[in-house]
């Protein structure tokens, strides 16, 4: 579901700022610089985000313009990976290792330093064997009209997108405001902006 197929779930943004004349070269480099990079296999559970192409989430080569620039549309995807250990399985392994340590050392309880060391070692081992959860969100930038459609409406995904977009292109994104529909009639926009909240409840009658 996204740019090329399926139903669209979209948050729209205004791009604040100008697209440079040499955007083809500059943006190819910018996308490459902020493309998704696989972390080391043993990397801990932090989240990693970067751009990929929409034809395959493993494709992060933006050197061919024809893969991401279609007339006025710049098209790419935000890939975010996060490794999460299964909590119950991790706890079970940790308990077993702590029990083995206590048995080997003739102690009832492992000291906190040892517990921490065993926990960290186990995290490294298990993260190395765990596949990440992968989220891919496609987006389209109309470079002429200055809007972006990001195909996800969750606040967390949108926050990541806005941040990486700024870092990549040096431009701010402003979430769509309905007042943008009134851009050609500033007097109407100002009048609407001044309106308060309507109360659709029936007023109480004094004489009732």
């Amino acid at each position: 579901m996204g740019v090329l197929k399926g139903a669209m779930t979209v948050r729209r943004y205004a791009v604040l700022g100008e697209v440079p004349d040499d955007f083809r070269v500059r943006y190819a480099d910018a996308l490459a610089d902020h493309a998704f990079r696989d972390p080391p296999a043993s990397a801990a559970g932090e989240e990693r985000s970067g751009w990929c192409r929409i034809d395959n989430l493993l494709e992060t080569d933006f050197s061919d313009l024809n893969r991401w620039l279609f007339n006025q549309y710049l098209v790419a995807a935000l890939r975010t990976d996060k490794k999460v250990l299964p909590a119950k399985l991790f706890r079970a392994h940790l308990d077993r290792r702590l029990a083995e340590w206590c048995h080997q050392h003739g102690r009832n309880r492992a000291p906190s330093g040892v517990r921490q060391e065993i926990r960290e070692q186990l995290e490294i081992e298990m993260f190395a064997r765990t596949l990440p959860r992968v989220q891919v969100v496609e987006w389209v930038w109309n470079l002429v009209d200055g809007w972006v459609a990001f195909h996800n409406t969750s606040d967390s995904a949108n926050d990541r997108f806005v941040k990486l977009f700024r870092e990549t292109f040096g431009l701010e994104l402003a979430p769509f405001s309905p007042l943008d529909f009134l851009a050609d009639d500033p007097d109407l926009a100002a009048a609407l902006e001044a309106k308060g909240i309507s109360d659709y409840r029936r007023p109480h009658r004094e004489d009732a």
Binding site: A14, G146, A174, F176, S177, P178, L179, D180
Partner: peptide, 16 residues
């Protein structure tokens, strides 16, 4: 589009 405020109550009123 230029970063206008969202004005949440007006979206809800628009829906009504």
């Amino acid at each position: 589009m230029n970063g206008n405020p969202a004005l949440p109550h007006l979206s809800a009123e628009f829906f009504v």
